[in-house]
Simulated assay, not measured.
Amino acid sequence: MSKLIYLSSIVFFITACASSVAQEENSSEVENKNTPPDTTNQQKNTTLPNAVAWDYFVHSGAKIWACREIEFGKFVLNKFCRDKGKNDLQWPGDVVPSNFRGQLID
């Protein structure tokens, strides 16, 4: 008889725990539905460049077109230059920029 009481109390405990977890999950889902979506920039510490231009240079024999921010010459994602025509008017010549680290992010 004592084994039966012991087993039933274990079953009760497991059922109560499972019920508590299910309630927490449901309340999280309801909370998430009531929370407005985050419309801020998802990439923290990243700002969109104001003005960008393509830069052409040769590095270790490789011909490279890279997108750079005009104001500081900082390399930015190439996607920011996709609507720009590829010309080398901003930084003419094929000299490797001093801030080029050998790896570009697209």
Rank of each mutant, 00 (worst) to 15 (best):
Q103S: 11
L89A: 15
N32Y: 11
F75Y: 13
I10T: 03
A53L: 00
K79P: 00
V52Y: 00
T15E: 05
W54N: 05
E25R: 15
I70P: 00
S27I: 11
N34A: 02
K86Y: 06
I10N: 06
S8H: 08
L48Y: 06
K74L: 05
N34F: 07
N78C: 02
N87P: 01
D83K: 13
R101F: 01
G73V: 02
V21L: 14
P37S: 07
D38R: 12
Y6M: 11
N41M: 11
F72M: 04
G73S: 06
I70S: 00
E71W: 02
I14R: 10
E31N: 11
E31W: 13
A18Y: 12
P92E: 01
I105N: 09
I64F: 02
V58M: 10
Y6I: 14
A51Q: 14
E24T: 08
N26K: 15
N50L: 03
N32I: 04
N45V: 10
S98K: 12
S28C: 06
D38L: 05
E29Q: 14
I10W: 09
P37V: 09
N45L: 14
L89M: 08
I10C: 09
A18F: 15
F100E: 02
N26D: 14
R101G: 10
T15H: 03
N87Y: 07
A66E: 04
F12P: 00
S27T: 14
N45K: 13
V11W: 00
T35Y: 03
F100Y: 15
L77T: 02
K84H: 03
E29S: 11
V21T: 07
G61Q: 03
D88H: 04
P97L: 03
K3F: 00
A22Y: 11
K74N: 09
G85L: 10
Y6D: 14
A66Y: 01
E29H: 08
A62L: 12
D88C: 05
V58C: 03
C17M: 12
N41C: 14
A62N: 10
Y6L: 13
G93D: 05
Y56P: 03
H59W: 15
T35K: 13
Q90H: 11
E71Y: 05
K44A: 12
T40K: 07
V58W: 06
T40D: 02
S60A: 06
M1G: 13
A18N: 08
F12E: 05
I105E: 12
W91V: 08
E25I: 15
R101L: 12
F80G: 01
S8L: 14
W54G: 04
A53F: 00
Q90T: 10
